[in-house]
């Protein structure tokens, strides 16, 4: 049992700072996690990437294929484009919701929080299914459009880029709202009041005080949303069609239909690299926000 090493406090060796567990104990405690992630995560992902370059022999052909074939370049471009549009929409919808959630008191705030949290807690599959129900040929949106006389024949909504963007925005919106909400909530209400007292109008107080102070949260929310949008699979796979192929659906296609593992590995490497670069940026944003609160 790993905990048994906790039983005896360390009394010899390097001085242990108050209330800290020693290096040996700590290593024993994290080792199951390292083992699990090593076997089930790091090794498989590493092997996938390795295969993209070294299987069967060293070659960069799979990577040059991504750039050389227009089809794949289009997919790459579309993935970033959709992720960008989704992020912008999520910010435009999400900021006011976060602001209302942070500033409106009492019951109504609970109601807004419920509207944000309930979708977050619902399976992505369920939400995607709901969008299919809404957008399909004889779905709710088409029914409403026809009954109000806006259109005569049902529109093709499903399997379009618009549908993918709409559904993804919906699924990712809570990830935008929550970080912004948490920074807004930590900005004392007094600051805006002080600005008003010092002569700023309400819009000015917002633009000069609240907005800049909420930037770290906005940056975090934006990056999380963008990262998740880049690698999203379930929603584009179900709501999108052949003409809305994204990186993730392309990778799936390569493995399940074409069994081209090295090429899937190369695509994964591109997706992974973009994600990790953004994640590094996210860490910078986090440390930026930390410095902010300390300063």
């Amino acid at each position: 049992m790993p905990e048994s090493s906790l039983a005896q406090p360390r009394i010899h060796g390097s001085p242990s700072s108050a209330g800290r567990y020693g290096t040996m104990t700590s290593l024993v405690l994290v080792s199951p996690l390292i083992l699990l992630l090593g076997i089930a995560f790091a090794y498989p992902v590493g092997r996938l990437l390795w295969n993209s370059v070294f299987a069967p022999e060293p070659t960069l052909a799979h990577y040059t294929r991504i750039v050389a074939e227009p089809l794949y370049l289009v997919v790459l471009w579309r993935t970033f484009q959709i992720a960008f549009i989704v992020t912008v929409l999520a910010f435009l919808f999400g900021y006011p919701v976060a602001y209302a959630m942070a500033r409106i008191p009492g019951r109504r705030a609970m109601l807004i929080a419920a509207c944000v949290l309930v979708p977050l807690w619902t399976s992505i599959l369920v939400r995607t299914y709901a969008w299919i129900v809404l957008l399909q040929r004889n779905g709710i949106v088409n029914t409403v459009l026809q009954e109000t006389g806006l259109t005569e024949t049902p529109l093709q909504l499903l399997y379009t880029q618009g549908a993918v963007i709409l559904a993804m925005t919906h699924v990712l919106l809570p990830f935008m709202v929550l970080p912004i909400y948490s920074t807004l909530r930590n900005i004392p209400d007094d600051l805006a009041k002080a600005a008003r007292n010092l002569g700023a109008g309400a819009p000015q107080a917002f633009i000069r005080i609240t907005l800049p102070l909420s930037l770290p949260g906005a940056a975090a929310g934006t990056l999380i949303t963008f990262i998740l949008a880049l690698g999203f699979y379930i929603t584009p796979a179900l709501v999108g069609g052949p003409r809305t192929l994204m990186m993730s659906t392309l990778i799936a296609q390569q493995t399940t239909e074409l069994l081209d593992w090295p090429f899937a590995g190369a695509l994964s490497a591109v997706l992974l690299t973009s994600t990790l670069l953004l994640a590094a940026l996210y860490r910078r944003a986090l440390s930026f926000s930390k410095g902010f609160s300390n300063g």
Binding site: P44, N51, G231, T275, L276
Partner: peptide, 13 residues
């Protein structure tokens, strides 16, 4: 952080 599609494909492989 790593996209689940990448994990999924890698795990399968």
């Amino acid at each position: 952080v790593v996209p689940h599609i990448v994990i999924a494909v890698a795990f399968y492989l």
